[in-house]
Design a protein around this nucleic acid. Structure first.
Lengths: 364, 364
DNA sequence: GACAGTGGGACAAACGTTTGCATTAATTGC
DNA sequence: GCAATTAATGCAAACGTTTGTCCCACTGTC
């Protein structure tokens, strides 16, 4: 029923190849002919059939974005940015949700592979070897994961952990805890490593707790361990965990931030609502950048080109994080333990700042 | 590079049509041959090319979901459910974000139309005639919108508004306000109408405020109008507006719920965090249902079938809402205005309940 | 006035499938 | 045992594009 290229050709007495070129290589067709073709196409409501085009060119002008859970507030900004960036290049995007299941993830990648020019894997849970195998079938860009030979965009977690630990140390905290996420999470591993390193650098003690599920329930579960750890400053795997923890502590009568300070990661919308201090990660920029890498890598490819023309594998791109100070952090209670003078004075200054402009948000 | 149907055919000395049938109509091919074909396909890593299949069958096994804003927490559960339901039927889904722009929406529909078997338009902003035109090109199911002749799934806003207004009236409020969303929003129109009707039915006064943007900023903007309206009970277009309003009122020293009660709509994750009383709408079920309607309508279609085989246009499906009572609603302050005895006594009871089990959530 | 150069278009093959029809072989009914 | 049915497979056209190659009719040049 919809008009085909042949209908257009017939309508203006010209060969189909001319119509085709009018769209794909306008320079090769006479200006007068071109406008006749365009008029006819417009009038017939012609839209090129992408499937047919994909069949012969080998390029689909489609991208795929695969995430663990669309309802996790961390992902939507990334998806949105990816989609919008793709649209800039006249691409559409498939979005798939793996429900946190590596097997589903793998199957989705496989079935999607034939229909896209590239795949964006966001915080993938798949095994490294599986990822490498899959990268052989279809161009891939990873987000929040490093696998040898596969391009990736990452958050600068080293800096992020340093910002969080420094902030707590600046406030005067000397006993910290890192509340970890899932054991299988690459991000968790990195964050933990970076936290340990930053704590050592500042000369404060840091204990590791977990693993816990990466959501509010995980935070609730972590509460007892946090209390017995004796830490006055807590750095959590992500905002959801931090929020779950904060709410639970408060319900149990532990004042936050007066008795325990909490820092999260990601700066999801909920974090602002509960005034959680957190390390903001530029998820939207990650989505944009990843799509750009995919498209760049892809350009010049196609079924005819073959593997030889494939662009050299791009490297990793690291995105800057930034600390957002809100109302979940403050100096530790004065009683325990004996404060060092330097830390205390700095902490006092911070404290005053926070009370003065309580509804202000400082970005560091 | 990837194996084609021809490679498989050659590998097991059989014609391509037999291979094709092995997948699309296994009953027509001998069991022994079938297993030989399957083995060869498996060994060569053959996956049917969807573009080629789409080209000849006219069916893409793809669906599209179009929303105004992916980062609006209202939509992700709907997208997730739609995607998961589609996967059950071996379909993939495109997700597109219109950035609240009707023109973008229209263009996305047009470009997506050629690549999908059906489109899910969630709270579309497009004009009615434009929607009708588009529905002629590709099967469509609307969510949260009624347009003559186009199937739709809707929230039962009549019931929702009644639940909200009844709840406020039960608490003893006699002067209410409806804080409206965008003027172009169909949902807003319905909600407003239903609120007026419910208020009249209960014999309480209700004034309409707005329009306001459908987000927290909208709620902030609405605060002055709410205060001057004299209302003690507020029903807001959605949770985001309700939250923005609540936070602003509190910052200005107006106690919620002691001085003003607020009810939202949607029950987004943030609502639970700030203990907002709200009318929950089953967005995930909406996504699931809509996909089911789309697929059902689509089955038996295809390029060869033509319009004659198109199933009769499905009707509307209305989904039940439910009131979630949290801590943003309470009886009005005793001073203003003189309470009617019936309302008061009931309100007292409610009030006691709330204080007794403060962290409990009642679903009505 | 023949000739190379060039711009514009037509021709046809190809992409990887599906599917109606023809063909063959095996089975059944009489 | 022969026609008629059924089961299994082969054959080839078709889907709507893109693109390499070929052809024609102009130009401008010597």
């Amino acid at each position: 029923m919809p008009a085909t290229i042949r209908d257009v050709a017939r309508a203006c007495g010209v060969h189909v190849s001319t119509v085709s070129r009018t769209f794909s290589a306008p320079g090769l067709v006479n200006a007068e002919t071109r406008s006749r073709v365009l008029a006819a196409a417009e009038q017939l409501g012609y839209r090129p059939n992408r499937a047919a085009r994909a069949l012969i060119t080998g390029r689909t002008t489609n991208l795929g974005v695969i995430v663990a859970d669309i309802t996790n507030p961390y992902f939507p900004p990334m998806i949105k940015a990816a989609q919008s960036q793709a649209r800039l290049h006249d691409h559409h995007v498939f979005v798939a949700d793996t429900d946190e299941d590596p097997a589903v993830e793998e199957e989705l990648v496989r079935t999607l592979a034939t229909q896209v020019d590239g795949l964006l894997l966001c915080s993938p849970r798949m095994s490294g070897p599986a990822l490498e195998a899959v990268a052989g079938e279809v161009p891939i860009v990873l987000v929040n994961r490093i696998v040898e030979g596969i391009p990736a965009v990452l958050m600068d977690l080293d800096a992020g952990a340093r910002q969080a630990i420094d902030h707590l140390a600046d406030l005067g905290h000397e006993q910290l805890a890192y509340v970890g996420g899932p054991a299988t999470s690459w991000t968790n591993k990195e964050l933990r490593r970076a936290s340990v390193s930053a704590a050592k650098h500042r000369g404060v003690r840091l204990t590791h707790l977990g693993p816990f599920p990466p959501n509010q329930v995980g935070g609730q579960t972590a509460a007892p361990a946090v209390r017995t750890s004796g830490a006055t400053g807590v750095f959590a795997f992500n905002d959801s965990v931090a929020i779950g923890l904060m709410e639970t502590l408060r319900a149990e009568g532990v004042a936050v931030p007066e008795q325990i300070s909490i820092v999260g990661v990601d700066d999801i919308p909920q974090a602002e609502l509960v005034r959680l201090t957190t390390v903001a990660t530029p998820t939207d920029e990650a989505g944009r950048t990843a799509v750009e890498m995919l498209l760049q890598r892809d350009s010049g490819r196609g079924s005819r080109g073959g593997a030889a023309t494939r662009a050299p594998v791009a490297g990793h791109r690291s995105l800057p994080t930034s600390l957002v100070v809100r109302a979940s952090t403050a100096p530790p209670p004065p009683t325990t333990p004996a404060p060092r003078s330097g830390g205390r004075s700095r902490a006092r200054a911070h404290d005053t700042d926070r009370r003065a402009g309580d509804d202000l948000t400082a970005r560091v």
